[in-house]
Amino acid sequence: MRTPARRPALVSLLAAAALSTALAGCSSSDSSGDDPATAGSSGTADSRVVTTDQGDVTVPGDPQRVVVLNYALTGYLYDLGVPVVATVAEDTEHDGEFSEFWGDAPEEQGTGFLPWSMDGFDHEAILGAEPDLIVAGGVGLPAVLAAEEYDRLSQIAPTVLVGDGLTTWQDQFSFLAEDVFDRPEVYEDSLAAYEARVAEVRDAITPPPTPVATLTITADRTPYLLFEDMGLSQTLAELGLEPAPLVAGHGLPPYKPGGDMAELSTEQVGQLLPDVPTVFVTGFNADTADVASLADEPVYAALPAFEEQHAYDLPYWAVRGDYDESLALLDIVEQQFS
């Protein structure tokens, strides 16, 4: 699990009609402020125009109360020095906990956690946080819900969705740094540090046999296969751990539209993985599984990767790792294979 940290109280819910009226005009399509046609791609000193999959969105030039509706995106804003007034927990079943990689920023900024469920976000709670900007989208269920609720969210504050075509941390971080917050130098410095570290680790390790596959296992023991062209699979590929083209080769659908993994049956595990010499295992949103426990189950024990001891644990947070988590993952891979 992520290292627990002291949590601030939930952002108070302010549902007063006056506040609702004041914020309702902050739609992404609102033309009462800077006109994108005259402001240009960067807007004015007080605003910026961001091109998204939903169209152009006029956002504050220096936002002070940002709500983030995907936990996996929150770390980028701390890296950028952007004030986060509230975010959501990693999943709908657990209380929110600050990531160990966020340092003191959440407490210093007074970040709170907003409730959400499989059915959607709590719009009254979001309104109560008084955001001047909402950042959502990315990958997974929060992204699906944000797309469905985009119009309602845009009535509370300008809303930017990180597009589902941005499937690596580099894609997401660069979009937020360059397009949304106009802080490209932060991303450039981060990318340079990351690439230098990748080169160090790649030279230091003796990688296991490739190609590799990565499974994430839920608490109820349901296996999911990570897509080879997204997220963690691509981070491993940078280190020479090329992913097996199982999803593309077998036409496996995402577990939900816009998702980054395919749900497998036990039979599919036995059918798809015998030709994959190396398997990585993670939990899903928690340390829900590991190689040792899976090795007691016949379907996994029979896989060559398990028989030949080329099955390896990775932390659950690596599945949708942001910049800081991806850097930490490099250290883990270096330790495993040096």
Rank of each mutant, 00 (worst) to 15 (best):
V201M: 08
R202T: 15
D203T: 11
I205T: 09
I205Y: 07
P208K: 10
P209G: 10
V212E: 03
A213W: 05
A213N: 05
A213H: 08
A213P: 06
L215N: 01
L215M: 06
T216F: 07
T216Q: 09
T218L: 06
A219Y: 14
A219T: 13
R221C: 05
P223D: 13
F227N: 01
M230K: 10
G231N: 13
L232D: 00
S233Y: 00
S233E: 00
S233G: 15
S233I: 00
Q234G: 11
G240D: 06
L241T: 10
E242C: 11
E242H: 12
V247T: 14
A248L: 02
A248C: 01
H250T: 01
G251Y: 06
G251E: 06
G251Q: 08
L252E: 02
G258W: 04
G258P: 04
A262W: 03
E263Y: 02
E263S: 08
E263N: 11
S265E: 10
T266K: 12
E267Y: 07
E267Q: 07
Q268I: 11
V269Q: 00
V269G: 01
G270D: 03
G270C: 09
L272V: 13
L273W: 08
L273E: 03
P274V: 15
T278Q: 10
T278N: 07
T278V: 12
V279W: 02
F280V: 03
G283I: 15
A286P: 02
A289R: 10
A289E: 14
V291A: 05
A292N: 09
S293R: 09
S293W: 06
L294F: 01
A295I: 02
L303A: 02
P304E: 06
E307G: 02
Q309S: 13
Q309A: 14
A311Y: 02
P315V: 07
P315K: 07
Y316A: 07
W317T: 05
A318H: 11
Y323R: 09
Y323M: 08
Y323H: 15
D324I: 15
E325L: 10
A328H: 09
A328W: 14
A328D: 11
L330Y: 04
L330K: 01
L330G: 04
I332F: 10
I332D: 11
I332R: 12
I332G: 02
